[in-house]
């Protein structure tokens, strides 16, 4: 119980990941969806760093990859907020359910 290992982190990461998906599904606010995406990315990132810690090799490949993920997430957030603002400008709301003009 007190010996914290890889599995502990993976469990946390998994739960965070799934909660992120839940947030993505259930929030109608575009920013809320973005928050869900950030949670998913964080969950994945915990995985990367945890595997890097417990893979038995003394390299930092996992950490560098997670660094890239963080950078990508930041870039994605910037773009997403810009998209949200455009969305808001066009539809006067951030409710993503209104963005169904292309529905079949």
């Amino acid at each position: 119980m007190f010996e914290i290992g890889l599995t502990h982190y993976l469990v946390v990461a998994t739960l965070l990941f799934v909660m992120g998906i839940f947030v993505m599904i259930t929030k109608r606010n575009a920013i809320g969806i973005l928050i869900g995406v950030e949670m998913v990315l964080n969950g994945a990132n915990i995985n990367l760093v945890a595997f890097n810690r417990y893979n038995g090799m003394s390299n930092i490949d996992g950490q560098i990859t997670s660094l890239f993920v963080i950078v990508l997430a930041a870039a994605e957030a910037a773009l997403a907020v810009a998209i949200c603002m455009n969305f808001y400008k066009n539809l006067n709301t951030v409710d993503v359910d209104h963005g169904d003009t292309l529905a079949g």
């Binding site: 998906i21 599904i25 109608r28 969806i33 993503v96 359910d97 169904d100 292309l102 529905a103």
Partner: peptide, 17 residues
């Protein structure tokens, strides 16, 4: 077939999951 094509992104995430 048209039913799931709601055009709502949240539903698509749900289907994907």
């Amino acid at each position: 077939v048209r039913q799931p094509q709601t055009g709502k992104i949240r539903n698509y995430v749900l289907f994907g999951t």
